[in-house]
Simulated assay, not measured.
Amino acid sequence: MSVSSFRVDVPAGSVLFHQGDPPTSAFLLESGSIEVTTAQGAESRRLGVLGPGDLLGEMAVLDDSPRTATARALSDCVLMPIDRKQFAERLESADPVVRALLLSQISRYRSALAQLSGQGEPVTAPLPTPRSGDAALALDKIRLESHLREALDKGELEVRLQPILDIARNRIAGFEALTRWTHPERGPVSPAEFIALAEETSLIVPVGDYVLDQVCGALQQLQGRDGAEPVFVALNVSGRQLGDAALLDRFLATLRAHGLQPAQLKIEITESLVLDYDQVAGIIARCHAAGIKVALDDFGTGYSNLGHLHRLEFDTLKMDQGFVRQMHEPRCLAIVRAVVAMAHSLGCNIVAEGVETQAQLQALGELGCKYAQGYLIGKPLPLDEAVALSRESGMGNRES
Rank of each mutant, 00 (worst) to 15 (best):
D95M: 01
S111H: 14
A114H: 15
S107L: 11
D83K: 13
R84A: 08
P96G: 04
K85V: 15
R72D: 05
S93E: 06
K85H: 15
R84K: 12
I106H: 01
D63C: 00
R110F: 03
L113K: 09
L74Q: 13
T70H: 12
E92P: 09
L79Q: 04
D76L: 07
P96S: 03
R72V: 11
I106N: 05
L62N: 05
D64R: 04
R99N: 09
S107T: 15
D64L: 01
S111W: 11
S107I: 12
I106E: 03
D76Y: 10
R108N: 09
A73P: 04
T68Y: 02
T70S: 13
E89C: 03
F87N: 08
P66A: 00
P66M: 00
F87G: 06
S93W: 03
D64V: 00
L79M: 00
R72N: 08
D63P: 05
L79H: 02
L79S: 03
D76V: 12
L62V: 09
S75Y: 02
S75Q: 01
A73E: 03
A69T: 08
F87E: 07
R110C: 06
L74C: 11
V78W: 09
R90Y: 07
S107H: 14
R72A: 08
A71Y: 01
R90A: 06
A73N: 04
V97K: 10
D63V: 02
E89A: 01
A88S: 12
V78M: 10
A71P: 06
R110W: 07
L62H: 02
S104R: 13
S93Q: 09
Q86D: 12
R84T: 12
A94M: 03
R84S: 08
L79A: 03
A114F: 15
R110N: 11
T68A: 04
L102T: 11
A88Y: 09
R99E: 08
P81F: 00
E92A: 14
D63K: 03
T68C: 05
Q105E: 14
D95N: 06
Y109S: 12
K85T: 15
S104M: 10
